[in-house]
């Protein structure tokens, strides 16, 4: 339990850092958000200028300290400001429209790639020198391939050459988003290629780590003892070797999730997928600071939450973590 409390404390600190970095984004960077917005909407009244200054902290309204607490207060009340590109929609409503897309796609793809990669890693290590183990260099190649390059290759093959999957957007043009079967079907169909990109590229990492740890574990005495006892190979493989070898994979989740999120952002850009990544890109291009802040906040909180979940799973999986702090 001490472990979880300790980690919880860490995530509180990390969340505070993320929130504070977010506070400084429009203040530390040279671009002036207010002028960008005024340039975009030239018929805004002067009062709007003042309101925007308050929001982005570009004018002179009290000390930085004062602004910071005003910002924290706004965060707690769920006010993230107004978006420029989706004006007059609030940032919160833009996020509400885009986050589910990313969450559904990235969440599902991450779970699939983790499970698949770990299983393949187990098999590759168990059948040492088998065809799967020998094809590791291919997986190394995939792991080192830039996400978007693989996405482009998949588009070239599956969309342009074979016309199997669409290469852009989250659903067919003309479809009205809603909870009906034709729309869900269309969304699923459009998500196959993006999901495939995430699964293929992130799977290799899980697989290689699992395989390497598993090989070390297979050499342990307790695995030899289990073999000497005459246990079934499958039981030794999963309950003896893999059960212990999977711990670094779970512990490494917090390091890998950043990689997955990064890939997902780029993947959305390539596929014009209507999620957080594409919106972040659009916001960055048009200096939409409120939206940038909102998206960064959502992404970092989601990542921290995913890491916390991974930690909880780790505690369940590793008895040692329950008694002492392993990190």
């Amino acid at each position: 339990m001490r472990f979880i409390v300790r980690r919880l404390g860490f995530y509180v600190v990390a969340a505070w850092v993320a929130v504070t970095v977010n506070f400084f984004i429009p203040r530390a960077l040279p671009g002036n958000a207010v002028q960008a917005m005024m340039a975009k909407f030239q018929d805004l009244p002067p009062q709007a200028y003042h309101a925007l200054e308050l929001q982005f902290g570009t004018g002179h309204q009290g000390s930085l300290f004062h602004q910071y607490f005003g910002y924290l207060g706004n965060l707690l009340s769920g006010n993230l400001g107004t978006s420029v590109i989706a004006s007059p929609a609030s940032v919160v409503s833009v996020l509400r429209a885009t986050v589910p897309w990313t969450l559904a796609l990235v969440g599902t793809a991450t779970i699939i790639s983790f499970v698949l990669g770990t299983m393949l890693g187990i098999v590759a290590a168990w059948r040492r020198g088998g065809w799967l183990d020998r094809s590791l260099p291919a997986f190394t190649f995939i792991q080192a391939t830039p996400y978007f390059f693989l996405a482009l290759l998949l588009i070239e093959l599956f969309s342009l050459n074979w016309h199997i999957f669409p290469f852009a957007n989250g659903f067919a043009l003309g479809d009205v988003p809603g909870w009906n079967w034709p729309f869900i079907g269309s969304a699923l169909y459009h998500s196959i290629l993006p999901a495939l990109t995430i699964v293929i590229t992130s799977m290799a990492g899980w697989m290689l780590q699992m395989r390497n740890v598993m090989i070390t574990t297979i050499g342990e005495d307790y695995v030899l003892a289990a073999q000497a006892k005459g246990l079934k190979p499958r039981r030794i493989m999963f309950t003896y070797a893999a059960r212990n070898a999977i711990l670094p994979n779970i512990a490494g989740f917090s390091l890998a999730i950043g990689f997955v999120v990064a890939g997902a952002l780029i993947m959305e850009f390539v596929f014009s997928y209507p999620g957080v990544g594409l919106t972040l890109y659009n916001a960055v291009v048009s200096d939409d600071y409120a939206l940038i802040q909102g998206i960064f906040l959502v992404i970092s909180m989601a990542v921290l939450l995913a890491c916390l979940l991974a930690d909880i799973v780790y505690v369940i999986a590793d008895p040692r973590a329950r008694t002492r702090a392993a990190f």
Binding site: A14, G258, V261, V284, I299, C307
Partner: peptide, 10 residues
Amino acid sequence: VLPALPLLII
């Protein structure tokens, strides 16, 4: 744990 790529892009 801070997501690096979005921060880099920004």
